[in-house]
Structures are given as structure tokens and as C-alpha cells.
Write a protein that binds this DNA or RNA. Sequence first.
DNA 1: CTGGATCCGCTAGGATACTG
DNA 2: CAGTATCCTAGCGGATCCAG
Lengths: 137, 137
Amino acid sequence: MATTTAAQRRQQARVEYDAFIKSCPTNQLLDRISDKWVSLIVSALAEADGPMRYSDLGRKIAGVSPKMLTQTLRSLERDGIVSRTVTPSVPVRVDYELTRLGDNLSCLLTAVKDWAEHHIEEVVEARERYDTSSEAS
Amino acid sequence: MATTTAAQRRQQARVEYDAFIKSCPTNQLLDRISDKWVSLIVSALAEADGPMRYSDLGRKIAGVSPKMLTQTLRSLERDGIVSRTVTPSVPVRVDYELTRLGDNLSCLLTAVKDWAEHHIEEVVEARERYDTSSEAS
DNA sequence: CTGGATCCGCTAGGATACTG
DNA sequence: CAGTATCCTAGCGGATCCAG
């Protein structure tokens, strides 16, 4: 009674794998830093080396919509990467700053950046080789 | 004549930013390693410490569809991360292996992994604090 | 000023079936 | 065995409007 098709088994495996991946710190971290806006926000705050206001970030990052800015900041705050300080004046003032953990993360990001800059050339060359050789077909 | 709304200006900025980001090695790399399957494939190949066949990878990674497996492998091959060796026997045999660059990348991945494992606890704690304090509202 | 809520288009990626 | 081609869905993220 092979009512369990290959697809079903694969999906089952996928569910388990997803669970595994979600519980895996590495993948959680990768998910986090791979977010386009995360790296930008973190490096913006790292450069500033001090608190930045919501609109400062919005201006510095330029292409971000308020929604994504807020959303990303919230998740970063939740993870203890940034701290959010509200000054209940009129108008309201909100400052964001890297926590110690966030600062640490920015170091990792720097390591990644270094790797990227050291190896990007190799990658580009590989791409060109690949592209020209497949064009030749 | 403010026919250029804030949204339009932001979109303009977004386009420029996208271009900037695409040309930025760091973000290219982040895009690459953040791909769910990339890290899995690279670490699978790193563990194997030798060539693996297409179906070996499919089995090892379990939850992946053929489409994504092929697609990911192709892009990794293009970037010179993995090498693809076809043995034209019957049936065909295809082996994938990390290149030197790929091997190097797996080291970076290890660094990321180490960071994740050292700091995940802090993140989890921060999350719990955040969640419980927002529940309290 | 700092966002929350809502709608909505788009595309990444999964299922499925087929080929060399 | 190692893919390719097709369809289709879910969710990400942008626009827009509104509120504290």
C-alpha cells in the first residue's frame, strides 16, 4: 500500500528539516544577517558609533520603506541587537543604538565583508569563465 | 510642483541603492550564503570531504526539491564554489565537489557558525525578555 | 515624528510530470 | 541517474492611509 508517494515522503522530510533548520543557531543567524536591511542598519549604526533617530536611519538608508525599517528594527530589538529608547517629548523622539551584542555582530559582519572583498575577484573570474564557456555552445 | 511624491523619491533612491548593493561584494556574498540551500550544500560537501553525486546530495539534504538542488548547484558552480564533473557512462554520473574557493567559503561558514553558537543564548534570552515584557501590556 | 494597519503585486520556490 | 519544463501558491515587501 504505497499511498505514501515519494513527494509525500519528501514533504515529510522537508517538515523535519525545516524544524531542524529553525532550531539551528547557524541558520537562524544566517537568516538574520542575510536580510538586506539588517546588514545596512547594523553597519549604519556601527558607523555612527552612537544613537541614531528613526528618521536618521530612514535617510541614511534611503531606499527603505517605513514598514521595513520598523519591522527590521523591531526584530533586531527583539534579538537584543539594537536598543530602542523613547524620549516622550513633543514630538516624540526615538533613538536606536547597537547593544554590546549588536556591536559584536557588526564585527562578524566585518569579517564577512573582509572575506567578500578578498575573494570577490575569484568569484567574478569564475563567473566570466562560466558565462563565456556556456555561450560557446 | 511637488509631482515628485515622497514615494517616488524613495523609489528612485531604492533603485540607486539596489544598484549599489548589487555591486557591493559584501551584499553579493551575503545573498549567496544566506540562501537556505547554499549553506546546507556547502556543509554537506565539506563534511563529505570528497565528491558527492547529485542524488547523494538530494538524499543527504532530504527536504530539497530537484529544482532547487539543481538551481543552487548551478549558481554555486558559476561562482566557482563547487565543481561539476560529468562521467558519460550509462547511466550518467555527475559528481560535485568543493573547489578551493568553496573550501575557503566553508571556513567562513564555520566562523559564522561559531559566532552563532557562542551568542545564540544571548539572543534567546533577549527574545524571552522582549516577549514577556510586551505580553505584560 | 514614529510608526501601525491594510491592500496588493510579484517572484521565489515547491509539486509534478516528462526527457536524454 | 540527472536533470528540465510547467504550473501554482504563499509570503515578502512596497504603497498608501491613518493614529498617537
